[in-house]
């Protein structure tokens, strides 16, 4: 088991008040898995990524366990965390420029990444060898003219190129766990598809474990083997990607899938889940989806369902008790 999360709760303590954004999350991920986190904006996906990589801002408060590669990262000091960041866990952000240093050339940043890897693994390399390794990695991402890209600064590259440079960093660092938070949202579909292929290959060829965060269910379907569906800080459904998409059990999952346009307008109106997501400051009692759920019954408004196991899946819904 590479990652084991037990009873994780996360709160943000802000001027507006203290509110819980992750509720009793449990998740086990094996080495080599490709897992996606889906759900609408503000459902808590990025927060989870930040907790695992220990990038949560100081206003975030946690309880529970996040055991990564044998250690509980929530209990590590910042100094101990620095030692494993990059090679044990590496996180890619939605805005790729956040992952790069704006005043350093691409080459220097990639060489640094490789140096970190080499020093932690006790590998000796000459500057020449290291440089070749970096060029090889860039070329494997099908970046045309790697040598030209290396001498540039991040702002001199297109969005797609920057994101590929960041993925190149991951390639050089070879983290055990890669967390990619909406890495393609700002990119064109063709470049998104290139990045998706890259991540799939990386996972297949090097057994790198990947957590992919997105609000695009189609993208998560194409990419991942396992899927977690978030709503209001809860994992409402969790299972094999193909099963979740082809046969959604939780009413929120089926609503989300049904609202994706799939046929032309003359065939009828698009389905959309009525209402809007709740505010964390005033979450409904009971099931958090109840005010929008067409199957809601009395119990749903009083008691919140915990994880219920059905057909290899975990579902937070009273219908499956």
């Amino acid at each position: 088991m590479l990652l084991s999360i037990k009873h994780l709760n996360v709160w943000y303590n802000t001027v507006a008040g203290k509110y819980k954004v992750i509720d009793d999350l449990n998740l086990d991920i094996d080495q080599g898995e490709l897992v996606s986190l889906v759900g609408e904006s503000a459902s808590g996906k990025s927060t989870l990524g930040q907790v695992i990589s220990r990038m949560l801002p100081p206003v975030g408060i946690t309880s529970g366990e996040v055991i990564l590669d044998g250690v509980d990262v929530l209990k590590l000091s910042e100094k101990e965390m620095t030692k494993i960041r990059g090679t044990t866990v590496f996180m890619i952000f939605q805005n790729p420029l956040n992952s790069l240093n704006p005043v350093k050339r691409v080459e220097d940043q990639l060489m640094e990444a490789l140096a970190i890897r080499n020093s932690r693994m006790n590998i000796q390399m000459t500057v020449e060898e290291a440089r070749n390794e970096v060029i090889k990695a860039l070329a494997s991402l099908r970046l045309p003219d790697p040598e030209k890209i290396m001498i540039r600064y991040p702002h001199e590259l297109s969005g797609g190129q920057v994101q590929r440079v960041v993925i190149c960093m991951a390639l050089l660092l070879r983290p055990k766990l890669l967390i990619a938070d909406e890495p393609t949202t700002a990119l064109d579909v063709t470049i998104q598809a290139q990045v998706v292929k890259l991540l799939k290959d990386l996972n297949k060829d090097t057994k790198m474990t990947i957590i992919f965060i997105t609000h695009d269910v189609g993208l998560a379907y194409v990419l991942s083997d396992r899927m977690l569906v978030f709503y209001a800080g809860r994992v409402m459904e969790q299972g094999q990607t193909v099963e979740v998409v082809k046969n959604p059990l939780h009413p929120y999952t089926s609503g989300l899938l049904a609202s994706i346009p799939s046929s032309p307008k003359h065939t009828g109106k698009l389905y959309s889940i009525p209402g809007s997501p709740p505010s964390y400051l005033s979450l409904p009692a009971g099931c958090k989806f109840a005010p929008r759920c067409r199957f809601a019954f009395e119990r749903c408004f009083q008691e919140e369902p915990s994880y219920i196991k059905k057909d290899n899946r975990l579902i937070r819904c009273w219908l499956y008790e």
């Binding site: 063709t190 998104q192 598809a193 998706v196 189609g218 379907y221 194409v222 998409v245």
Partner: peptide, 8 residues
């Protein structure tokens, strides 16, 4: 290049 729910 477009991800859909038809082809994985």
């Amino acid at each position: 290049s477009v991800p859909t729910l038809d082809v994985k």
